[in-house]
């Protein structure tokens, strides 16, 4: 590939406008995605929570199980919303509907389209996070004023996964491959200290889990909503930001060589 002039992808906004326009025909699908994490909160947080009672969180004090699980579901919903957009919907636009092909024959470039897609995916994830934090407040599950930062933290989680999803999608050849991504997300959702603390694991397994991206997101959001704020959270932020930047770069480069051939 030859050298191209670098340009700030300002027209990425157009992609967001396009998705918003399409979304008006299909708003129920996106909106209803908000319901699932709330159901998990009610079912697992309160239903099972009544059996679990309290959980110790690091620095000696304990919280109710619902307080423990809620931030994990908040981070997961940011992940789910973002990654669904940047895998299934992106693949549909790329391969099946060839929306991208039409878009890039206008002044909107591949970089604009990629960044726009990622931003839209972050937006969808953020929508769920904001909705979820309101539910948490209403149910009294916020234990610290630091929780105000939980929303930007979830947006960061959304960014990291939107970018990862977009990068992975550029390698996908057929719909069935997307099921593999889904299949990988499920264990991540179930094992990233979402429903129980990492202390449950044997040390080696614990180390492994601590290096997965959703664990980082959950650790960050949980630290903020429960008030367990320490320098470790900055490590989470760095991890997620780097993952997002790498993902979005890979996605843009791969899309460029694929669409502009």
């Amino acid at each position: 590939m030859s050298v191209r002039t670098l340009r700030i992808p300002t027209r990425s906004v157009r992609m967001i406008e396009r998705n918003a326009m399409a979304f008006r025909h299909n708003w129920m699908v996106i909106f209803s995605g908000f319901v699932e994490p709330v159901l998990y909160l009610l079912g697992i947080g309160f239903g099972i929570g009544s059996l679990v009672r309290t959980i110790p969180i690091g620095d000696g004090h304990t919280v109710s199980y619902a307080v423990f699980v809620a931030p994990a579901l908040m981070a997961s919903s940011a992940m789910n919303g973002a990654i669904y957009e940047s895998t299934f919907n992106l693949f549909y636009k790329l391969r099946y509907a060839r929306t991208f092909e039409a878009v890039i024959s206008t002044p909107v470039g591949v970089e604009d389209a990629t960044l726009g897609e990622v931003m839209w995916a972050i937006g969808r994830g953020s929508l769920y996070s904001v909705g979820f934090v309101i539910v948490m407040l209403a149910l009294g599950l916020v234990a610290s004023p630091w929780a105000i930062l939980a929303v930007p933290a979830s947006i960061l989680v959304g960014f990291a996964f939107a970018a990862l999803g977009a990068a992975l999608t550029t390698f996908v050849r057929q719909w069935q491959d997307l099921d593999i991504i889904q299949l990988a997300l499920q264990p991540m959702f179930l094992f990233s200290a979402t429903f129980f603390p990492v202390t449950v694991y044997p040390p080696a397994l614990r180390l492994l889990v601590e290096w997965t991206p959703l664990y980082r997101g959950i650790d960050l959001v949980r630290g903020l909503t429960t008030g367990g704020v320490g320098p470790g959270l900055l490590g989470d932020v760095a991890y997620l930001a780097v993952m997002g930047l790498i993902g979005v770069t890979i996605a843009a480069l791969r899309l460029r060589s694929r669409l502009l051939k």
Partner: peptide, 12 residues
Amino acid sequence: VVPQADNLDLEL
């Protein structure tokens, strides 16, 4: 541009 195969936006 009118491409060989239509790539209209099916969601709109």
